[in-house]
Simulated scan of single mutants.
Amino acid sequence: MSDESNAYWQANIRLIKWSLVIWAVVPFGFGILLRPFLKGISVGGADLGFWVAQQGAILVFLALIFFYAFRMNKLDRDFGVDEQ
């Protein structure tokens, strides 16, 4: 593999790793570990920790999908492997 190809895949893997870290930290961290600290904050009739574990994690996951697609399109353009 060429140096440019290696740089492209390293950037791709780094983006995937950070997306997975965010995806894991939000429901586990806010929904489980920090739930006692978020107990007094109410969102939609439930405490914030419960809300993050149920709906917030899904919204973060959807946001990560769009962010990943946006960043990968930019990465593809930067390395000249885009579809257009």
Rank of each mutant, 00 (worst) to 15 (best):
Trp51Gln: 07
Val26Gly: 06
Lys39Ser: 11
Val81Leu: 01
Phe70Trp: 15
Trp9Thr: 06
Gly80Asp: 00
Phe70Tyr: 14
Gly31His: 09
Asp78Gln: 14
Trp51Cys: 00
Ala53Ile: 08
Gly80Trp: 01
Trp23Leu: 14
Gly45Trp: 02
Asp76Ala: 15
Asp82Ser: 14
Gly45Met: 02
Gly49His: 01
Tyr8Asp: 02
Trp23Arg: 04
Gly80Val: 09
Phe28Trp: 11
Val43Leu: 15
Arg71Ile: 08
Leu64Pro: 09
Leu59Lys: 09
Val25Cys: 10
Leu59Trp: 15
Pro27Arg: 05
Val60Arg: 01
Gly49Asn: 06
Leu48Gly: 00
Val21Leu: 15
Leu15Thr: 11
Val60Glu: 01
Ser5Asp: 12
Ser19Pro: 00
Asn6Ile: 09
Gly49Ala: 07
Phe37Tyr: 12
Phe66Gln: 01
Ala24Asp: 06
Ala53Lys: 15
Trp18Val: 09
Leu34Val: 02
Lys39Cys: 01
Gln55Arg: 14
Phe30Val: 12
Leu64Asn: 00
Leu15Ser: 12
Ala11Cys: 08
Leu59Asp: 06
Ile41Ala: 09
Ala69Ile: 12
Gln55Met: 11
Ile32Asn: 10
Val43Pro: 13
Val81His: 03
Asn73Lys: 11
Ile41Trp: 10
Leu75Met: 13
Ile41His: 02
Ala7Met: 06
Ile58Leu: 13
Arg14Gly: 03
Val43Asn: 08
Gly29Arg: 02
Arg71Ser: 10
Ile65Thr: 08
Glu4Val: 06
Ala7Asn: 05
Ile16Tyr: 05
Arg35Cys: 03
Leu38Pro: 03
Ile32Met: 12
Ala57Val: 00
Ile13Ser: 09
Trp23Gln: 13
Trp9Tyr: 14
Asp3Arg: 13
Ala24Thr: 12
Leu38Ile: 05
Val26Ala: 10
Gln84Ala: 02
Gly80Phe: 02
Ser19Tyr: 01
Ile65Val: 15
Phe37Arg: 11
Ala69His: 05
Val43Ala: 13
Asp78Phe: 09
Phe30Gln: 10
Phe28Ser: 07
Leu33Pro: 01
Asn6Arg: 13
